[in-house]
Amino acid sequence: MATVQLSEAEKVYVLHGIRDDLRVDGRSCEDYRHMEIETDVVSNTDGSAKVTLGHTAVLVGVKAELGKPRPAAPEEGYLEFFVDCSANATPEFEGRGGEELGMELTNTLYRVFNNKRSVDLGSLCISPGEHCWLLYVDVLLLQCDGNLYDAISIAIKAALFNTKIPKVLISEGEEGGTEIELSDDPYDCVRLSVDNVPCIVTLCKVGHRHVVDATLQEKACTVASLIMAVTPAGTCTCTRKVGRGSLDPESIFEMTEAGKRVGKALHGPLMSLLLQEETLGKKRQKVGFLG
């Protein structure tokens, strides 16, 4: 993980700042940094989104492919995740340096998103037990400045919202089996419902308080943090504790309450932004990576 070194005195300064609810960049404990979201940035995917949060930048691409449903869930499609830690983000990721972090992120993403309560997996099924859509969700870290989980989850939600899956026609084949025919019209497609897709909120325990959207400097001062996936309804679907330190049950309760509140409030602006972007349609000038 990209880390920074801080001196004792700097840590004390950050710690006292959080105690007084005034962080180094002027935010209070539950504020997010400025966030920019753009969808449909990669043309050869079915859905993509780029999110920048402070100096953290994440690109997510979703590619739909035909596959066979898993035997355990014959009436559902499924998602495959891959997180690529580009050495552009930090030189530490060079070679195999980013693999460990990538695996950790991937495993969390599976737990958070790959179930039918988060993503409408039933709509990905074409014919039960035989054909389904499987979505490859590829995450690319372009810059690391703390709070990767939150940025990735928001980017995934935006990319899933943007995903357009071609319509298919199922017909009886000559030898009794089913045949699948893809629609030729590129605009003839179905959208995935993202009503229940959760966003991840990372709460870092610093001193006696907790902060959301920690920068790298703040992360260097935390002993443990709690990762929570929260749906728009405010339901917490997954929690994980990361970091070496331990958390008091009482503070875990406080943090989950704060996490639910923050997570719930995250969805509103995100959805309105995505809808706003969509209404602009083709008129919107794409910024992409050079803007």
Binding site: E30, L273, R284
Partner: peptide
């Protein structure tokens, strides 16, 4: 709690 989300704009 404050979230500021927006579309990116071209650097003027």
């Amino acid at each position: 709690m404050a979230v500021d989300m927006r579309l990116p704009t071209f650097r003027s």
